[in-house]
């Protein structure tokens, strides 16, 4: 429980950092000049790595998750692709469960801050997600009538897909370094209730017994500019006008 509270605190602090950063950058009154001719030509590619997954992979022995995302902008829309890999072992006194797999997500975002001169993003979007994974369960059982026993069951290369509604922010911190987070609502998955081994966890989705799932990523992002963004002009402040 304490561990979870700490995790929560970490998320909240980092969310606050992103907010403060975006507030600080927005103090200068810059206004984008309206350019209609080339606005659907991408200005840059952002590539990010999920820090939560990397953090968990370092701190836990039986947990590995690496997740990356990339997006490219078309005016106020982004096209996102995400790729991740996970490997996890769960163990107790009479069972051992392992799952490994990779997942891929693709989908559009709409940016509500598209006039921001730093090209920060506050976005809402959709994802289609698909995964291929394998899992295995070794367990022992007790039975009063037929005696105790052990069993090993597995799934090989199961395919699952689902959809996600996402929202989050991406904020420029320094030159090409950005931070961002994405909150996810995941739905529309097959929970494989009829398999001999019902999966416990689906990579990229979460607990397999849930029809809907929540997720959260915190990204360290590098932005590769492709062309100059729309030009901006600085508005005179009210102090200047009163002189």
């Amino acid at each position: 429980m304490l561990n979870k509270s700490l995790k929560m605190l970490r998320y909240l602090i980092s969310i606050c950092l992103v907010t403060m950063a975006s507030a600080a950058f927005s103090q200068k009154e810059k206004v984008q000049l309206d350019t209609t001719s080339r606005r659907f030509i991408p200005t840059g590619i952002r590539v990010g790595a999920d820090l939560i997954g990397f953090g968990k992979s370092f701190s836990k022995v039986d947990y590995k998750q690496y997740e990356f995302q990339a997006d490219i902008d078309f005016y106020r829309y982004f096209l996102n692709v995400e790729y991740g890999q996970m490997e996890r072992t769960l163990e107790n006194s009479n069972s051992l469960y392992t799952v490994e797999g990779s997942y891929f997500k693709v989908g559009p975002d709409i940016n509500f801050l598209h006039r921001d001169p730093d090209q920060s993003a506050l976005f809402f979007g959709l994802r289609y997600a698909t995964t291929t994974f394998s899992d295995e369960l070794n367990f022992s059982y007790t039975n009063d009538v037929f005696g105790d026993g052990t069993s090993q069951i597995s799934n090989t290369d199961l395919k699952a897909d689902w959809f996600e509604m996402v929202t989050g922010m991406k904020v420029k911190m320094w030159k090409f370094i950005w931070l961002g987070y994405t909150a996810r609502f995941k739905f529309g998955i097959d929970t494989f209730e009829r398999n001999e081994l019902i999966p416990h966890e689906i990579p990229g989705y979460g607990r397999a017994d849930k029809n809907v799932s929540w997720g959260f990523n915190y990204y360290l992002i590098f932005r590769i500019p492709l062309r100059k963004g729309p030009q901006t002009i600085e508005l005179p402040s009210t102090d200047d006008l009163n002189k």
Binding site: L90, E91, N92, S93, N94, S95, Y97, L137, F139, Y141, S151, I153, E193, R194, N195, E196, L197, I198, P199, H200, A208, D209
Partner: peptide, 13 residues
């Protein structure tokens, strides 16, 4: 048919 799942580390199968 038998369908087995791990409920959680605490709960077992």
């Amino acid at each position: 048919n038998t369908n087995t799942r791990l409920v959680s580390e605490d709960c077992g199968i």
